[in-house]
Computed example of a mutant assay.
Amino acid sequence: MKQIQNKKCGMPIALWRILILAVLTILLVISLLVSISQGAVHIPISDIIAAFSGNTGINSQILLNIRLPRALLTILVGMNLAVAGAILQAVMKNPLADPHIIGISSGAGIAGIFIMIVVPQYSFLITPVAFVGAMAAAISIYILAWKNGIKPLRIILAGVAVASFIGAGISALLILYSDRVHGALMWMVGGFAARSWVHVHLILPYTIIGIILAMLFTRHLNVLQLGDEIAKGLGMNVERIRIFLTAIAALLAASSVAVAGLLGFVGLIIPHTARLIIGSDYRFLLPASVLLGGAVVALSDTVARCAFAPLELPVGIFMAILGAPFFLFLLRRQL
């Protein structure tokens, strides 16, 4: 059989996709270097190399104790949210699906805020409790959207309703515990200020487990894009796979919410951008989303941190400025 050729450059499509992944890997490394070098104190590349060679100067202390953990955290959160969004778009057959938009992040958010302001002594439970909240929101969306099957528009409307209901609950908590809301308010916006190695260690296991599980189910994600009838005809237990993949997306979103707050639109923008440059095959789309998600959130945090220095803009505001017009563009194209 003749090998499929890429129309733009004449090379095999698989080779083209591998080249794209290599470029995205380089972009991720550049994003990391920019993130750790830029800030109130500029750290040149020579000092970065010296820091990893055992130098103990002031720049090395800034790099290893402040810049590097924050940069790694932005990359991990970007990876998690991008993969969660890509999974939900296939599972829900909806290009507008995103953990933030359809309410899954809100479910994780209200659970996390409850822990933070009502029982702060149990803050070590934020991630598992946020996962329970995210899954509860996802199940609620499924129940509300189900009527002789799942339709994309019903999922969005159900997600908006669930997010609004949860938003009311969050507001009630903030009013009832108004003396403890400062940290929660910053957390709701989404950002990485004052994050450290503790937060990196908190999210890293969930990132590894979630992304590996997602990669193992790329074939199922490809089949789900073809529709439920075709998937069932191929012997797939559609609902069981859908629930399992939604749980993976909820785990990735909840772990991100636990360390970065309610950071929106990453799961919407990144998978669509990756799909434009590498195609819809999830064997390549998921790795591209992982790399691009990490790079975009790291660069966005760097811009948000440096653009209005010495004032630091939460990256959640910056992502909302980018994401809201993108969402409206997709909405107009779909309806």
Rank of each mutant, 00 (worst) to 15 (best):
I203Q: 11
V238L: 13
G210T: 10
A130S: 12
I269Y: 06
M188P: 02
L226S: 06
A134Q: 03
N222F: 05
M135I: 15
Y142D: 05
A137I: 05
W16I: 00
L299W: 12
G57T: 08
I101L: 13
D228Y: 07
G191K: 11
L202A: 14
A254M: 10
G227H: 05
A22S: 01
Q3T: 13
V257K: 11
I150N: 05
A86L: 05
P314Q: 15
N148S: 15
N237V: 09
L322G: 01
G57W: 12
L174C: 06
H272D: 01
F284S: 01
T273S: 13
D228V: 09
F308N: 11
F329M: 07
R17E: 00
I126Y: 06
R180F: 13
L24N: 02
L245Y: 05
F265S: 04
I243V: 14
A193N: 14
A231L: 09
A22Q: 00
K147G: 02
I317E: 10
V290G: 03
I230V: 15
P152D: 08
I270A: 09
P152V: 11
I269G: 02
S280H: 05
I20E: 00
S255D: 02
A51Q: 04
L213D: 00
P99A: 14
N6D: 13
I49R: 11
V297R: 13
L153H: 07
V290P: 03
G279Y: 04
A168P: 01
G267Q: 07
I270N: 03
L204T: 12
I248G: 04
L335T: 04
Q61C: 02
I48T: 08
V118I: 15
V198H: 14
V259D: 07
I62N: 03
D98R: 04
S196P: 05
M236T: 02
I155P: 01
I4R: 13
G323C: 12
Q5G: 10
W16V: 00
F326S: 01
R70D: 01
L173R: 12
I126N: 06
R17S: 00
A324T: 02
L21Q: 00
I241S: 10
A84W: 06
P271H: 09
L125Y: 10
I209W: 09
A324Y: 01
T273I: 15
A194K: 15
A231C: 10
W187I: 06
F114Y: 14
G57F: 12
R242V: 03
I43V: 12
A172C: 06
F131I: 03
I139V: 15
F131C: 01
L157M: 07
L76V: 06
T74N: 13
F192M: 14
V119G: 00
L245P: 00
G183E: 07
S280E: 04
A304F: 12
G267K: 09
G210P: 03
A137F: 10
V41E: 07
S123P: 00
P69W: 11
A260Y: 12
